[in-house]
Amino acid sequence: MKEQIITLLNTYENFAYLVSIIINVIISILGFVPSVFLTAANLAVFGFWKGTFLSFAGEAIGAIVSFVLYRKGFRKLSETKLFSHPKVRRLLDAKGLEAFFLVLSLRLLPLIPSGVVTFVAAIGKTSLLIFIIASSIGKIPALLLEAYSVYQLMNWTCQGKVVSTLLSVFLFIFTWKKINRKTAQTNKT
């Protein structure tokens, strides 16, 4: 996928920034498609700093557009039993400073899907302004880490190899713990 986006950005060189942002908005609206391949394409075409900034801008704009669309289309879902889990209810009911810090902290956690945070905040009581500020601030460190990791992997530097190894070990341990938890739960019943 990265190669197709690189080709698209190079083909429409005069509109490459806009094309990248539009793709990021679409990814944000879909909510479940990872943006790492777009970040990689942006880094390959525009370089590290311009590519990182463009990815940040695209993700921030995409989150705002998604928030507005989700709020208009799915607001009534917040009252369904589907969103009755206490941790989800906390974000749904959060306002003001609490909403700010919840969105910010959830953006900083790399394992929480961005689309889920946007969706739950949008159908809840979080204001658009609070969401924009918290979401954008929270995306900065997460995107810098993503861009740095992708850049190192693309160039296959020593640091890229370390990042790849650490990521592999982390995913292995995470998966192993999940499997062991399910096995323990199954054995209890």
Rank of each mutant, 00 (worst) to 15 (best):
residue 186 T to A: 15
residue 188 K to N: 06
residue 136 S to K: 01
residue 45 V to R: 15
residue 10 N to A: 13
residue 72 K to L: 14
residue 173 I to Q: 10
residue 101 F to M: 09
residue 145 L to T: 13
residue 23 I to R: 07
residue 26 I to S: 07
residue 91 L to D: 12
residue 111 L to H: 05
residue 1 M to S: 11
residue 108 L to N: 08
residue 173 I to H: 12
residue 81 K to P: 04
residue 152 Q to G: 11
residue 182 K to N: 10
residue 1 M to I: 14
residue 165 T to D: 09
residue 6 I to P: 02
residue 42 N to W: 09
residue 145 L to S: 15
residue 76 K to N: 10
residue 101 F to L: 11
residue 175 T to I: 11
residue 22 I to G: 09
residue 181 R to C: 03
residue 116 V to Y: 02
residue 134 A to W: 00
residue 177 K to D: 03
residue 66 S to T: 08
residue 8 L to W: 08
residue 110 P to N: 09
residue 54 L to T: 13
residue 93 D to V: 04
residue 169 V to Y: 04
residue 136 S to P: 02
residue 37 F to G: 06
residue 30 L to E: 00
residue 184 A to C: 03
residue 179 I to G: 08
residue 79 E to D: 13
residue 7 T to Y: 14
residue 39 T to R: 12
residue 129 L to W: 03
residue 79 E to T: 08
residue 166 L to T: 07
residue 169 V to P: 14
residue 185 Q to M: 13
residue 156 W to D: 12
residue 3 E to F: 00
residue 94 A to Y: 00
residue 62 G to H: 01
residue 157 T to Q: 11
residue 168 S to M: 03
residue 96 G to N: 07
residue 49 W to R: 12
residue 148 Y to Q: 05
residue 46 F to H: 06
residue 168 S to Q: 02
residue 102 L to K: 07
residue 59 E to I: 10
residue 1 M to H: 12
residue 158 C to T: 15
residue 7 T to I: 07
residue 142 A to E: 04
